[in-house]
Design a protein around this nucleic acid. Structure first.
Lengths: 342, 342
DNA sequence: TAAAAAAACTAAACATATTTAGAAAAACGT
DNA sequence: ACGTTTTTCTAAATATGTTTAGTTTTTTTA
C-alpha cells in the first residue's frame, strides 16, 4: 500500500553484498575502503535504478552531521535580511547544505530558545545569526564555545567571535561627512532603542566623529531615539515634534531602513516636502524603495550579496575545521558605499 | 572535554528507572501509560536539572515525524514571499513546528530536486509551495500523492490539490473595471512569460473579461510579455517602444510586483512623468514601495498574513489527518482589495 | 606450494530515541 | 495467605544508516 522506501539493505540484498559495502560506495568511499571498481559500479547503478536516497535522519544520528545551517534574523520580511538569506542559501546549496531560517522578532528569549533547540542539540551544523542579544554571555556556554557560529550584521563586543559585518562606522562617517559638505549644520539622526546593537552604536560613533571632525557640536537633540516595538508611531510623534520646533534642522539621517520607511510614511501623511523645506534625507541601508522615493535619499549601501556569501562560506569553513585546535577568529568587515541620489 | 549531551539513558540511570519510562514521561504520555504521579515528577525535574532535550534525529528516525515544514518559493527576497514566509513561520512556531525555506529561482528542475530531497524522503512533514511547474504531472507520483502539500499563490489546474491563493481573477477584474471607470480606453498589461502560472493566467483572464464587459476590444497589443529571466532589460525595451509608438495608451497595468518595479525603474531612468502624460499606472501585488512612489499606483493587495497563516494551518491539518481516508481537497481562495491611491 | 601480504568484503556495534509485549509489584478479594 | 486484578514498570525490538574490527579471498613471495 504505502510505497516502501528503498533502504541500504534492499540494495545489499539485491546484489548479495553487505550493507556496509553499499554504504561505503554510496558515500564515495569505495576506493579508500578498497572496494573493487566492478562492485562499485554495480552498487551505484542498482542504487540509481532503485531510486535510493539516504535517510537524512539516520545519517545525521550516526554521524552527528546534518548538512543543515541555521539562519537567525530579527525579521525575514525585512529586505535587508531576506536578501542576505537569498545569497546565503545560494552559497550553501552549491556545497550541498540546506538552510533553516527563523525570525526572532528581536526577542532575546526567542533567540536563545532557538539556539538551544538547534545549535546545542546539534540539529544544525552551523549557525549564522544577526543576534539581538545585549551581551555575549549566552554564547560563552561550554556547549556553544566550540560550535560554528558566524555573526552577521552585528557582533557582540564582549566576546571573541567570527563575524561578517559592514563597516558601519566608516559608512556612517562618510555619509555624515558628505552631508556636512553639502552644507548641513544641524543633522538629526534617528536611532532605535534599545540601541546596544553593535551596528547601530558604530553608526552613531561614525556620525559623532564626523561632526567632531568639522567642529560641529553634538547635542542631545542631534540624536532621536525611537522604540523598536512601535517604530511607526514613535517616529510619527517625534518627527512631527521635530518639524514643528523653532530650531531649524537641515538633514535627517535614519540609522536603518525601518526608521527610514517610517519617516517616509510620515512625510507622506503630512504631504511634507523635505526638499522644499531645505531638509536633506539620508539613511543607512539602501533598499530598492529608495530609488523611487521623493525626497531623493542619500544612503549607505551594504554589500548584501557579499555578506551572505562570505557568511555562508565562513560557516562552512568553521565546520570543516571543527575540532582542529586553532581557535582563530575571522572578523570580516566589508566596505559600504554611498549612494548619492541627486 | 567535549561536553556530553544528556541522553534518556542518563536520566534513567540517575533515577534507577528504565529509559522507556523516561521517554514516556518526557512525551507527556505518563498518564496514559500509567506512570505514577510521583515518578513523573521525579523524571521531569531530573530532566530539567540535567537540561535534557531530545535528539530530533533519533526521534524523527523512529517516529517518521520531524516537526519540520518546507516552504518552497521562487525567491525569498521577493517581499511577497518573504512576508508570507514570516507569517507561515509564526503560525508554525505556535504549534511547535519549524520552517525550512528554499528558493527555486523559478527553476523547475531545482524545484523537483528539492521536493524529492525533502518531501519524498520525509525529511519534512509537510510542504508549502509556490510551484513553478508547468503541470501537475510531477505531483502525481505515488510517493507524493499522500504527502501533505499546500500550494500557495499558484495552483496547478491539471491536478486536484490543496491550495491557498488570492482571488486573482476577481482582483484583476475589479482593477481593470476601476481603470475603465476612470476613463481608460487603451490599457496595456505587462505579463511575464512563460506565463503558465495560474495566478498570472487568472489575472489575464480577469483583465480580458473586464474589457469585454465594457465592449472594449482586446488586441494583441494590449498584452505585452516580458521574459522572466531578464525582466529589467526586457521591460525597458518594450516599455520604451510602447511609449514611443504613435497609438496613445492611457494605462499601464503590471501583473506582478517584479514587473511593476522594473517599469518604475524605467520611468526613473527616462524621468518619465506618467501622470503628466495621462497614463495611469496600476499593478497586481501591493508592496510597501507603492506607498511612496510617483506616479500614484492603483494596486491589488493580497492578504499576505492570511495566506501565510491559512497555508500553515492547512498544512498542519493535513499532517494530522494523514492516512485518515478522506481525501477531500481544500481550496482556499482569499479576497483581494483594491488600493486606489489618489 | 606454503607462508605472507594485499585486496575485497562483512558481522556486529553504534548513534538516540519510541514502542510493543510482557514482567514485577502492589492492591484486592475471600 | 493465596490467587486475581490492577498498577507500574522494563527488556528488547525498531527506525536507518555509518564505522570498527575482523574475516575471507586472492595474489605475491620465497
Amino acid at each position: 500500500m504505502a510505497l516502501k522506501k528503498t533502504l541500504l539493505e534492499d540494495i545489499a540484498r539485491e546484489l548479495n553484498v553487505s550493507k556496509t559495502l553499499v554504504s561505503m560506495v554510496i558515500n564515495g568511499k569505495g576506493d579508500s575502503y578498497g572496494i573493487s571498481k566492478k562492485t562499485q559500479e554495480k552498487v551505484l547503478s542498482k542504487a540509481g535504478e532503485m531510486q535510493y536516497t539516504p535517510n537524512m535522519f539516520a545519517r545525521a544520528l550516526r554521524t552527528g552531521k546534518s548538512n543543515l545551517i541555521g539562519l537567525l534574523v530579527a525579521d525575514i520580511s525585512n529586505p535587508f535580511y531576506s536578501n542576505i538569506a537569498k545569497y546565503v542559501e545560494k552559497a550553501l546549496a552549491e556545497k550541498g547544505y540546506n538552510l533553516m531560517i527563523c525570525s526572532t522578532d528581536e526577542n532575546i528569549e526567542r533567540e536563545e530558545k532557538l539556539i538551544q533547540l538547534f545549535a546545542e542539540q546539534q540539529i544544525i551544523d552551523g549557525l549564522i545569526i544577526a543576534s539581538t542579544n545585549t551581551s555575549g554571555e549566552f554564547f560563552k556556554k561550554e556547549r556553544l564555545r566550540n560550535f560554528p557560529i558566524v555573526f552577521i550584521d552585528r557582533y557582540l563586543p564582549d566576546i571573541e567571535s567570527n563575524y561578517v559585518v559592514a563597516n558601519d562606522y566608516q559608512g556612517s562617517f562618510e555619509l555624515t561627512d558628505l552631508l556636512i559638505h553639502k552644507g548641513c549644520k544641524n543633522i538629526v539622526a534617528f536611532n532605535i532603542t534599545p540601541s546596544h546593537i553593535s551596528s547601530l552604536t558604530e553608526r552613531v560613533r561614525g556620525f559623532k566623529d564626523a561632526l567632531h571632525k568639522y567642529h560641529l557640536p553634538f547635542k542631545e537633540s542631534n540624536l532621536v531615539e525611537v522604540s523598536f516595538n512601535d517604530i511607526q508611531n514613535d517616529v510619527r510623534k517625534k518627527l512631527i515634534a521635530l518639524l514643528k520646533q523653532s530650531e531649524k534642522i537641515d538633514a535627517i539621517y535614519t540609522l536603518n531602513n525601518n526608521i527610514a520607511t517610517a519617516c517616509l510614511n510620515v512625510f507622506n501623511e503630512l504631504a511634507f516636502d523635505a526638499k522644499k523645506e531645505g531638509i536633506i534625507f539620508a539613511s543607512f541601508d539602501d533598499i530598492s524603495l529608495f530609488d523611487f522615493v521623493k525626497p531623493n535619499i542619500i544612503s549607505v549601501s551594504q554589500p548584501l550579496e557579499q555578506i551572505g556569501t562570505e557568511a555562508a562560506n565562513l560557516a562552512l569553513k568553521l565546520i570543516d575545521k571543527k575540532g582542529a585546535g586553532t581557535v582563530e577568529y575571522e572578523k570580516i568587515v566589508l566596505p559600504t558605499s554611498i549612494i548619492s541620489r541627486n
